[in-house]
Amino acid sequence: MTHSTVIADTEERAAVRGVWEDLGLPGLVDVHTHFMPDNVLRKVWAYFDALGDGVWPITYRDDEDTRVERLRSFGVRRFTSLFYPHRPGMARWLNGWAADFAARTPECLRGATFYPEPGAGDYTEQAVADGARVFKAHLQVGAYDPRDPHLDRVWGVLAESGVPVVVHCGSGPLAGPFTGPGPFAEVLRRHPRLTAVVAHAGSPEYGAFLDLAERYERVHLDTTMVFTDFTERAAPFPEDELPRLRALGDRVLLGTDYPNIPYPYLHQLRALTRLGLGRDWLRAVLHDNGARLFDLPPARM
């Protein structure tokens, strides 16, 4: 790390902490960050690199310890290790890795995942019993139908346990065969008590996923990459939907996609601040909603 990078990191850390300190918060709760086995993460980075020069630069291309320590220095009280399989047989292995990562990283909410395959219900139930705090489903990368019969018990286990699942079901940045609000809406009709967090606020189908959040009291939206300059160019959030977003302020959660973002972490926070939805809304989104959803102990001030 060069001297100039250290200075830039120091300045960003102070600025990030300034956002939540100004709101009187004890820190941040970020429900959408990515930690995964090194070989898997490098394949994710290679995918973004292949998009072309400068299309999607990875801002925080560091080793695991550095990435964890940066979040701590930002004042992120809890974060996630979201990961996702794209073929049968991956989920159990990833869940084992996540258990070890959470054991050595106290701020990480222990993660788990699943894939439509025989035994998915069994290993999901076991992951919940073993202490998984949050699951991830990526319908675009996994290219699977959330209504697959192998997943019916999975959704049922999660609905009954109340363990949240972060679901990438919107069609951004690229549509898949089972993205968009339709397939996941059918899952919610079958499992209306499911505690779901719609990743990226359902981008670009924002209105349809706001509909689902209004219809189902346990459906949440995360802010991952939404409202940033990067996303606003390709999939702007409709200004006339902002009142609905404000009204759902108790079910909007901070998400960032760290470390796989093409801009600084601070930019996500400033993008949310400039919406002008009020300090109470910001406090809820940046910390209080996540703290309540994951039943975090009171912070030491």
Rank of each mutant, 00 (worst) to 15 (best):
L254T: 03
L253H: 04
D257K: 11
G249N: 10
R218Q: 03
R279A: 12
A199M: 10
R270C: 11
R189G: 13
T256P: 07
T224K: 00
I261Q: 09
V187R: 00
Y206H: 11
E241A: 15
A271R: 10
H220G: 00
D240G: 13
Y263C: 12
G207C: 02
H220P: 00
L266T: 05
Y206W: 11
V252R: 02
D222L: 04
H267M: 13
R270V: 10
P243S: 11
L248E: 09
P262W: 06
L245M: 11
V252G: 05
L248K: 09
H220R: 03
V252P: 04
D250W: 03
L275G: 07
R244H: 14
P259M: 01
L188P: 01
Y216E: 01
S203C: 15
A199R: 11
E241N: 13
A201Q: 13
E214L: 09
T273A: 13
P259F: 00
L221N: 04
L245N: 03
T231D: 14
R233M: 14
Y265R: 09
S203E: 14
T224Q: 00
A247P: 12
A199S: 14
D222C: 05
P238N: 06
G180F: 04
L272H: 11
R270H: 13
P181H: 00
P262Q: 10
V197R: 02
F237S: 06
R215A: 13
P192Y: 05
D250I: 06
T195I: 02
A196T: 06
R274P: 10
H267L: 12
Y216F: 08
L242S: 09
R193N: 14
E186Y: 03
R190W: 06
G207I: 03
L188Q: 01
P181R: 03
D250A: 08
A234N: 15
L254F: 05
P181A: 08
V219W: 00
R215F: 02
F227V: 09
R189W: 05
D211H: 05
A199I: 12
L194G: 00
L248G: 05
F184N: 00
Y216C: 03
